[in-house]
């Protein structure tokens, strides 16, 4: 099981006058679903890039799972980032480790209702379908840590709701430690075990709140809405973020 321990003492971009992230600490328990909520530009994507190993220019230490191993990271980017010249299935096959059985792809495709479209090219499919492919790709590597960077941001609300529901079901079947970035509080409450609110320049944690609504009642819009109101009333800081 994978615990994640993040310490970033200082992350300053070359040429920037102020650090983007300073004295930031966060730990995630195994199979915990954590949402980072903050205004855009506060450094959330920077944090994910550090976690995924895309950005190594920071001072600090990130530990995913056991020490001295390269963690497997599933990253669902803001845009799907599929290879347009490979079919849906090929896109997923490409990320599998050499010793991994491709049978996992069939299961995931079936779950996301994409079995019919597996030999199509991404540009011929809808945006929502491309998102689902990106989600499958991230789950297929069986990651130690799953990163999601506002993956539903360009979808229309009904499609976003459907894909979100599918994501939740999939996650409940195959639990992973998830770090999910969003600036939509309602979305965060629907998905997360724990909410982390972030302020910007430099990025820091304002509050760390456990979502008390049980998983079985997350589809209940009124429960979510009332918790949202309660949050906004109890923590005036949060209101300023959104």
């Amino acid at each position: 099981m994978t615990d994640v321990q993040i310490t970033i003492d200082n992350k300053t971009y070359a040429g920037a006058t102020q650090p983007t992230i300073k004295n930031f600490q966060l730990s995630l328990k195994a199979n915990e679903f954590v949402c980072l909520v903050g205004s855009s530009g506060c450094g959330k994507t920077t944090l994910l890039n550090c976690l995924s190993g895309l950005d190594t220019h920071y001072e600090g230490d990130i530990q995913v799972g056991e020490q001295h191993t390269t963690p497997k990271i599933g990253y669902i980017f803001q845009n799907p980032r599929l290879l347009p010249w490979r079919t849906v299935r090929e896109n997923i096959e490409l990320v599998l480790a050499p010793n991994q059985s491709p049978a996992v792809i069939d299961v995931l495709l079936d779950f996301m209702q994409l079995t019919q479209s597996q030999h199509e090219y991404p540009e011929r499919l809808s945006v929502g379908m491309n998102r689902r492919v990106a989600i499958i790709r991230a789950f297929a590597v069986n990651p130690d840590l799953l990163l999601m960077d506002e993956p539903f941001v360009s979808l229309d609300p009904p499609t976003a709701r459907d894909v979100r529901a599918l994501l939740l079901q999939l996650w409940q079947q195959r639990p992973h430690t998830v770090l999910f970035v969003t600036h939509d509080l309602r979305e965060a409450i629907t998905l997360a075990d724990r909410l982390i609110f972030l302020a910007s320049t430099p990025m820091r944690v304002i509050s760390d709140i456990v979502v008390p609504i049980p998983r079985t009642q997350r589809h209940d819009e009124t429960a979510i809405e009332s918790f949202r109101q309660q949050l906004l009333n109890n923590y005036p800081d949060i209101k300023l973020l959104l």
Binding site: G53, L54, T70, Y75, F77, R81
Partner: peptide
């Protein structure tokens, strides 16, 4: 974006 994706998912050089 695609190069980052390839790096993040540990694509080999030839891949």
């Amino acid at each position: 974006d695609l190069m980052d994706m390839a790096r993040c998912y540990h694509f080999s050089k030839t891949k």
